[in-house]
Simulated assay, not measured.
Amino acid sequence: MVTTTQREEMTWYECEKCGLLFDAEDEARQHEQGCDSEDPSYLQ
């Protein structure tokens, strides 16, 4: 499930599985469908 949070006067969409933030809800939902709930792959 994607949650919303307010930071720097903007709404961000957060993946509940890994905590990654997105500025577009569609992108967050797409990410969450494939999220394995480990560290984001860009950190590997």
Rank of each mutant, 00 (worst) to 15 (best):
C15Y: 04
D26S: 15
C15V: 06
A24H: 14
L43V: 06
E32N: 13
T5S: 04
P40G: 05
Y42N: 02
D36E: 05
T3W: 02
A28H: 02
C35E: 08
E9G: 06
M1H: 13
D39Y: 10
V2W: 08
Q6C: 01
C18E: 06
E16P: 00
S41K: 05
L20D: 05
A28M: 01
R7L: 10
E25Q: 15
T3D: 09
L21T: 04
P40L: 05
T4I: 07
F22W: 08
Q33W: 10
E27K: 12
P40M: 06
D26T: 15
Y13K: 08
Q33P: 00
T4W: 06
C15W: 02
H31Q: 02
P40H: 12
C15K: 06
H31A: 05
C15A: 08
E38D: 06
W12E: 03
R29S: 01
E8P: 00
Q44S: 08
G34T: 15
A28L: 01
G19C: 02
T3S: 13
E16L: 11
R29K: 13
V2G: 10
C15S: 08
C18F: 07
A24Y: 10
T3L: 03
H31Y: 12
S41H: 08
M10G: 02
E14G: 00
Q44C: 00
C18L: 03
A24D: 10
K17Q: 12
M1S: 15
L43A: 07
D36M: 10
E38A: 09
F22T: 07
V2M: 04
T5F: 01
G34H: 14
M1L: 11
T11H: 01
H31S: 07
E38F: 07
C35V: 09
L20R: 15
E25C: 12
K17P: 00
Y13N: 06
T4F: 04
D23L: 08
L20T: 15
D36L: 07
